[in-house]
């Protein structure tokens, strides 16, 4: 019975939600613009830490703290983009992965009075929970407690909003320029578009969406811990995106839910056979293998159509 309910529980929970945002951001980067951002975790980390530290250390009101988090993500995008976006695609990948690792390093070792090293930041969710309109209840409804449910309501509503925004943007001339850059940035440049500026816009926009993943994750856990933002987090989001099929509005949502469903299902399935530590490692190995196999055999995702694949092969 757990075999079904646990995956189902996980598929909609706050953790999945935060990954949906990360993957939605990567969809803007990789799916639509062709930018390789291996440091999406850094956007989430910077968003989450800004929110948490603003509230916990400086008593800044919740909504203002969210805005500061967004601002921090914008700045991070500029930091990553300015040195790299005029260069070959690899440089962005290298710098983003380096920034993500460095962020984690800094959060876990510096300014301990604010970041609290590996213990992480706590005590910042009060403002958000005070807004919870749900009637007081103990225990669980639909297997979620009151706080989780509130995070989920807000989170999924935001997912719907972001999907709508992405859909609107991607059918606009703005989205057309991004897709053009993905196909061949020199062609787009030869038509008079400022490619650098569009790549920067895409990087920042996708990064801000990723920061929302950081907010949701932080609110769901009621804590912000450096190791929640290691580079593997980015790779998982990337796997989700490709699983769902990049460059489709809903693919990050579908990919993330499917991924967590499978991931969780495997955990329950193996529960009796091996230790939880081993299960974790086995599952991660499989994630890596799955990412490789997807990119080799189904780069258009499991729902993608063959026609696009054929175009890639040309």
């Amino acid at each position: 019975m757990d075999l079904l309910t646990t995956p189902l529980h996980d598929m909609f929970g706050p953790v999945t939600l935060s990954y949906v945002f990360l993957a939605m951001g990567l969809n803007i980067h990789y799916g639509y613009t062709g930018l390789l951002n291996f440091g999406q975790a850094a956007f989430a980390a910077v968003g989450a830490y800004t929110l948490a530290v603003s509230v916990a250390s400086f008593d800044i009101p919740f909504v203002l703290a969210i805005l500061l988090g967004v601002l921090a993500a914008v700045l991070l995008g500029l930091l990553m983009g300015i040195p790299t976006l005029r260069l070959r695609a690899d440089y962005l990948a290298i710098v983003t992965i380096a920034v993500a690792e460095s962020c984690r390093l800094i959060f876990s070792t510096q300014w301990k009075s604010h970041f609290h090293a590996r213990d992480g930041v706590r005590g910042f969710v009060g403002g958000f929970r005070d807004l919870n309109p749900l009637p007081d209840y103990e225990g669980r409804v639909l297997s979620y407690n009151r706080n989780d449910l509130w995070v989920m309501i807000v989170g999924w509503a935001l997912v719907a909003l972001v999907c709508l925004l992405v859909w609107l943007l991607m059918r606009s001339p703005w989205g057309r320029v991004l897709k053009g850059i993905r196909e061949d940035e020199n062609a787009v440049r030869s038509l008079g578009k400022n490619v650098y500026s569009y790549k920067m816009q895409a990087l920042v926009f996708g990064g801000v969406i990723g920061a929302f993943g950081g907010f949701i994750g932080a609110l769901g856990n009621a804590s912000v811990v450096p190791d929640d933002y290691n580079t593997d987090v980015t790779f998982v989001a990337l796997t989700m995106l490709i699983l769902g099929g990049a460059a489709r509005v809903m693919s990050p949502v579908v990919g993330a839910m499917l991924f967590w469903g499978l991931f969780s299902f495997m955990g329950v399935l193996l529960d009796d056979v091996m230790s939880s530590n081993q299960i974790t490692m086995i599952r991660w190995i499989l994630v890596g293998v799955a990412l490789m196999l997807l990119m080799i055999f189904r780069p258009q995702g499991i729902f993608g159509d063959k026609k696009e694949l054929a175009l890639d092969a040309r």
Partner: peptide, 20 residues
Amino acid sequence: GTSLIAMMIITIGMQLALRY
């Protein structure tokens, strides 16, 4: 004729699988 970008993602998958 797999693109370099796709290959880079494949190396990421490999990194993940091997590390674990």
